[in-house]
């Protein structure tokens, strides 16, 4: 008698796969990458490719050493590599993204069990690791767009003299004029590779929402709570609205809200949880910007909120259809 294959129901699946979801994220990231190459020159591309290669290579190596099934085809390492590069200044020496990528994948992602199991965002954790280990390359000043275009794409390291300018972020308290705000929106300013063009990031957000890769909850609550806090408690002598707008358009808040706070593995599952998480990220970002000695707060804010995700999921467990006793409280 011929036996048939017996498999559990359902016997039909949607066409979406992990790889197709990650491909959508890569597509959403690409406008910002193209813009980065346009304003910062080809060195931005070199740094990005090295970061991606380091992430994919690290995952392949880890799977090989530990004799696990190769998982690089799910493309999640590519996304990590892209986001890590987006958080680096274009002027970093070329070995830096390699170290960062290896750290992100090996230490933060694979040691905790691989995709979906890590409790910190790998790209962000790697960024903070690089930030604390190599502050001279990571902090302080960024290459201005015009000066950066002339940088050699392949020089291992480059001097910062002559190309760097203080970030807008460190000067917004002294007031910004309207034209600068427009430049900040389009991305004609200094900054990390992927964070400068808010327009490109918003295009990415739109794509992610249309493709239903993410929901509106985290980016909207993050940005709105951040904006409102800046608006209610402005600093410096500028008017509140223009200070809040400048804050929103500077630094890594937009990149964080769209691509990093929404990382699946490290954000809550429930809609209510996402709202709490988004507000937490927004509030902490303002807190770090106002009170810490670092100019940027989004990375620390998101990483701290990452650690609350387990509890947020517990607290916001939805009410079961049909009632019944609530669990996990």
């Amino acid at each position: 008698m011929k036996l048939l294959r017996v498999s559990p129901s359902p016997h039909m699946r949607s066409a979406k796969t992990t790889a197709s979801v990650m491909r959508d994220v890569i597509i959403a990231l690409s406008p910002a990458l193209i813009w980065a190459v346009y304003v910062f020159g080809f060195r931005a591309l070199t740094v990005t490719l090295l970061s991606v290669a380091a992430c994919v290579g690290a995952e392949a190596l880890f799977c090989y050493i530990t004799k696990r099934r190769q998982t690089i085809s799910d493309l999640s390492a590519v996304v990590t590599g892209l986001i890590l590069a987006f958080n680096l200044p274009v002027t970093v020496p070329l070995w830096l993204p390699v170290i960062g990528g290896a750290f992100a994948i090996m230490v933060v992602k694979m040691l905790f069990g691989g995709i979906g199991k890590n409790f910190l965002n790998p790209a962000l954790a790697a960024r903070v690791f690089l930030f604390l280990s190599f502050p001279s390359f990571m902090a302080g000043s960024f290459a201005a767009p015009d000066a950066a275009r002339g940088l050699s794409p392949f020089a291992l390291s480059i001097g910062l003299d002559g190309v760097s300018s203080p970030t807008v972020l460190s000067s917004i308290e002294s007031g910004v004029d309207k034209r600068v705000l427009v430049d900040m929106f389009y991305g004609n300013i200094g900054g990390c590779i992927g964070e400068v063009s808010k327009l490109c990031l918003l295009l990415g957000l739109l794509y992610l929402l249309v493709r239903r890769v993410i929901t509106w909850h985290i980016p909207v609550t993050y940005l709105v709570s951040f904006f409102l806090l800046c608006f209610m408690f402005p600093r410096g002598d500028d008017e509140a609205l223009s200070f809040a707008l400048a804050s929103l358009l500077s630094g890594g808040v937009m990149l964080g809200a769209v691509f990093m706070a929404t990382d699946y593995a490290t954000s809550p599952l429930t809609a209510t949880g996402k709202l709490i998480y988004g507000v937490g990220c927004g509030g902490l970002t303002v807190f770090f910007r106002y009170f810490s000695s670092y100019p940027e707060g989004a990375s620390f804010a998101i990483l701290i909120m990452n650690t609350f995700v387990y509890y947020i999921d517990r607290w916001t467990q939805p009410r079961r259809f049909g009632g019944g006793k609530h669990a996990g409280k």
């Binding site: 992990t18 799910d74 999640s76 995709i115 699946y264 593995a265 599952l269 809609a271």
Partner: peptide, 14 residues
């Protein structure tokens, strides 16, 4: 389909 890993996308919760 080959069984893979949960990526915590939350689609099942929705």
């Amino acid at each position: 389909e080959e069984a893979g890993q949960c990526i915590r996308c939350g689609k099942c919760v929705r």
